[in-house]
Amino acid sequence: PREAYIVTIEKGKPGQTVTWYQLRADHPKPDSLISEHPTAQEAMDAKKRYED
């Protein structure tokens, strides 16, 4: 089974940042970016789909 994890990042100019959620996995390479999402819920949904 595949495993993934969610990383929170800040995008934008200082003082005007927006939080994004990255879905990452250690396949095919360590810390590979799988997808980016504007909400934590979307990231969790993507994580479930990826791991299923």
Rank of each mutant, 00 (worst) to 15 (best):
S32V: 13
Q41I: 11
P1Q: 12
P38M: 12
K47R: 07
A40I: 15
L23E: 01
E36D: 03
P28W: 06
A4N: 02
R24P: 02
P28G: 07
K11Y: 10
E10D: 10
Q22P: 01
K11Q: 06
E10L: 14
E10W: 06
D26W: 08
W20L: 06
A46I: 01
A40C: 15
R24N: 02
T17L: 13
Q16V: 09
D52P: 06
G15Y: 06
E42Q: 09
E42L: 09
G12M: 04
E42W: 02
T8E: 14
T17H: 07
S35E: 02
R49H: 09
E10Y: 08
I6M: 04
T19F: 11
R24A: 03
V7I: 11
D31N: 15
L23M: 03
G15D: 07
I6T: 01
H27M: 09
A25E: 04
D31S: 12
P30N: 07
G15P: 15
D52G: 14
Q41P: 06
E51D: 13
Y21L: 01
R49T: 08
T17K: 13
K11V: 10
Q22K: 00
Q41N: 08
E3P: 10
D45F: 08
T39I: 03
E3K: 15
A25H: 05
S35C: 05
Y21G: 00
I34A: 01
E3N: 14
T39D: 05
A4T: 08
D31G: 15
D26T: 10
Q41R: 10
E3C: 14
Y21R: 00
V18E: 15
T19P: 08
E10S: 10
I9M: 07
K29S: 13
Y5L: 03
K11A: 05
E42K: 05
G12T: 05
P38E: 11
A25I: 14
Y5F: 10
S32Q: 09
D52C: 11
Q16P: 09
R49C: 09
K13Q: 14
I9P: 01
E36F: 03
Y21S: 00
A46P: 00
E10K: 11
R2G: 11
E42G: 08
P30F: 10
T17F: 10
D26R: 14
D26V: 10
T19H: 07
L23A: 01
A40F: 15
E42Y: 03
G12N: 04
E10T: 12
T39Q: 03
W20P: 00
D26I: 07
V7Y: 05
I34P: 00
P30V: 12
A40G: 05
I9C: 09
M44C: 11
V18W: 07
T39V: 04
S35Q: 01
P28T: 06
W20G: 02
I9H: 04
W20T: 06
R24E: 02
Q16E: 13
A46T: 02
D31C: 15
D52F: 12
Y50T: 02
E36Q: 06
T19M: 09
Q41E: 14
D26F: 07
A43F: 00
Y21E: 01
M44S: 08
Y21Q: 01
R2K: 13
R2A: 09
P28D: 08
G12E: 04
Y50A: 03
P1K: 15
E51G: 06
D52W: 10
Q16K: 13
K48W: 08
T19W: 07
A43V: 05
R49E: 10
Q22E: 11
R49N: 09
D31R: 11
Q22W: 02
T39S: 11
Y21T: 00
E42P: 00
K47D: 00
K13N: 12
R2S: 08
I34C: 03
S32N: 08
H27T: 11
